[in-house]
Design a protein around this nucleic acid. Structure first.
Length: 545
RNA sequence: CGGCUAGUAGCUCAGUUGGUUAGAGCGCCUGACUGUGACUCAGGAGGUCGCGGGUUCGAGUCCCGUCUAGCCGCCCA
């Protein structure tokens, strides 16, 4: 029988569980942030008529489409990004949708370009978009920046830089240069966009190669470039640019928009250190009309932009006949994932299960299945080993291989006593427990695979600054334990103060005796206080005395 | 799509100026261990040397073609 060689198309890949687990976790986190800002989910087909998808992306993008004839000889293409489909949806269901229409969409897109697996460039990759359609307000633009910052925080990034600009500045520049061919201006913008890659000289070279740009014009563009990189703070930079653009009306408008977006983003709580007004930001897509933004990670700059977008007030009009304002931003999660991995910010995990229940032999099978059911009822992800005859050694090796942290072992001996053994793979520690105690013990030994997703409560976190850092800023109760899990200190915190309360609860001498901590979110301060008093009275922790 | 580099075991690679039966480490499987993983020891499986052709008594090694992968260019998330 001839064997079919298993292989993949260049630029495409399989997502094995090891990759898929952190990936789906990240997608969930991102969706949660989007919903927190009031965006609703939307999905659209991967394939559409080519003329729709290629609507206004520009000649550069058109080359990169997967485009073909379907069996009904229709001219179709795989979607290149998600925004065009949104514009189509808004036009098609115009009267059914509220304005502003805020939607998020996560799904694969395809680009037939040169892939670079190492740096997170693929021919099939996912985008996570949020867009606001139907609002001229610059609050919408600023909200995109706020969402950007919130996403970065949610996935654990601390070194992101959100750089933004306004395309109207280029209109102003065009006016100042006296250029009336849009194609030439587009070429100039593309040259400016390359600044970060090729530097000032590189841009100068690019400009020199353009026909219709004389020496004087070149100097003007370079002067603009210098102001774009002016170091002295965002406000000062906008001031300089505004001064430079002088009487060019759209340039002035661009500057005032830039100023307003900056102010509103600050008021939405985006720290100044993550914001950079940078007039060399252009963005390749042709449909942008106002604000444009790009986000890079200082930990992994070579990955390029991990999140970007802008305002595109003309796109919906292409399908609707009348223009509707829109602004949006898109997370490139494959790139983000690759960047996080290279900056070792990614929590890897190979297994969904927290517990593996071993099966000793046929006679013990029923007991094993019952244990698993108990665990699952308590919400613990549990896997039963499915080969009944297999040696314990093999079953443990399986748990090891999948990095499942806990194993339940119950042979005739344990069953006779109504017990089971819970083995902690990391330490080799083994506990004898009544079957009824098993879920509780598993839950309290359970190591959260990804502390970033921790919500509500956790147990047994290592008492270290980087773990305390992960505690959300809510209120509630916390317990500090020594290596034998004896509670050494019980404390509570007012709403918003939990992380700090844990951090300053102990002096350095006492802190050395604490190995792990638990915390529970409680939304009423009075309740936290009462529970804490109760716990202290009951357990009498050493350091509370 | 243009330029550069590379394809030998599941992975990382070695393989002399062309010379008999192509090796190592790691991984995998089995056993020592009849109730315990990551350590140790013993054994085992796994290769048309990317594919096709040529030169030669003889090719993993040299030549041509082809395919695939990687890097750079262009562009982007």
């Amino acid at each position: 029988m001839p064997r079919i060689e298993p292989r993949l198309l260049k630029g495409f890949r399989d997502y094995l569980p090891e990759v898929m687990i952190p990936r789906t976790r990240m997608l969930r986190k991102i969706a949660a942030v989007f919903e927190r800002f009031g965006f609703e989910p939307l999905d659209t087909p991967a394939i559409e008529y080519a003329d729709i998808l290629m609507g206004k992306l520009g000649p550069e993008a058109e080359k990169l489409f997967y485009r073909f004839r379907d069996s009904g000889d229709r001219d179709v293409a795989l979607r290149y990004e998600l925004t065009v489909s949104l514009a189509r949806v808004v036009a098609q269901y115009s009267t059914d949708l509220p304005r502003p229409f805020k939607r998020y969409q996560m799904g694969p897109v395809w680009r037939a370009e040169a892939p670079s697996m190492e740096r997170g460039r693929f021919r099939e990759f996912w985008q996570c978009d949020v867009d606001i359609v139907g609002s001229h307000s610059l609050l919408a633009d600023a909200e995109c920046l706020a969402v950007d910052h919130a996403v970065m925080q949610a996935v654990g990034v601390k070194t992101h830089l959100i750089r933004f600009n306004n395309r109207k500045l280029f209109r102003g520049l065009q006016e100042k240069l006296g250029i009336n061919q849009d194609a030439l201006m587009a070429a100039i913008m593309r040259a400016v966009d390359k600044f970060d890659k090729v530097g000032r000289e590189g841009v100068e070279k690019e400009l020199a190669a353009l026909e219709g740009v004389d020496a004087a014009a070149r100097q003007t563009v370079l002067a603009f470039l210098d102001l774009a990189k002016f170091e002295g703070g965002n406000d000062a930079r906008i001031g300089k640019l505004s001064e430079f653009l002088g009487s060019a009306a759209s340039g002035q408008l661009g500057c005032s928009e830039l100023r307003e977006v900056l102010v509103e983003a600050r008021r939405m709580g985006v720290p100044e250190k993550h914001l950079l007004v940078d007039a060399t930001i252009v963005r390749g897509l042709d449909y942008y009309t106002g604000t444009v933004f790009e986000t890079t990670l200082s930990d992994a700059p070579s990955f390029g932009s991990v999140m970007s977008g802008g305002r595109y007030d003309g796109l919906v009009g292409l399908f609707a006949g009348k223009d509707e304002p829109a602004v949006g931003i898109s997370v490139g999660i494959d790139r983000l994932l690759a960047a996080l991995e290279s900056a070792s910010l990614l929590m890897k995990s190979k297994a969904s299960a927290s517990v593996l229940v071993t099966v000793f032999d046929e006679t013990c099978l029923e007991y094993a299945l019952k244990s698993a059911t108990e665990l699952r009822r308590a919400g613990v992800n549990t896997e039963v080993y499915l080969e009944v005859g297999a040696k314990l050694k093999k079953q443990l090796a399986y748990a090891e291989r999948k990095a499942i942290p806990l194993v339940v072992i119950a042979g005739p001996e344990e069953i006779a006593a109504g017990e089971t053994q819970l083995r902690v793979m990391g330490t080799g520690e083994q506990l004898r427990l009544k079957l009824t105690e098993l879920p509780q013990a598993a839950m309290s030994r359970f190591v959260e695979p990804d502390p970033n997703t921790a919500a509500g409560r956790t147990w047994d976190w290592a008492f270290k600054p980087e773990m305390i850092e992960r505690v959300p800023e809510v209120g509630g109760l916390f317990l500090l334990r020594d290596e034998t899990r004896v509670v050494k200190f019980a404390g509570w915190a007012k709403y918003g103060d939990l992380r700090n309360a844990i951090r300053r609860s102990l002096g350095p001498a006492q802190a050395t005796k604490v190995k792990t901590f638990d915390w529970y979110e409680i939304r009423e301060d009075e309740l936290s206080e009462a529970l804490c008093e109760f716990v202290v009275a009951r357990l009498k922790p050493e350091f509370n005395a």
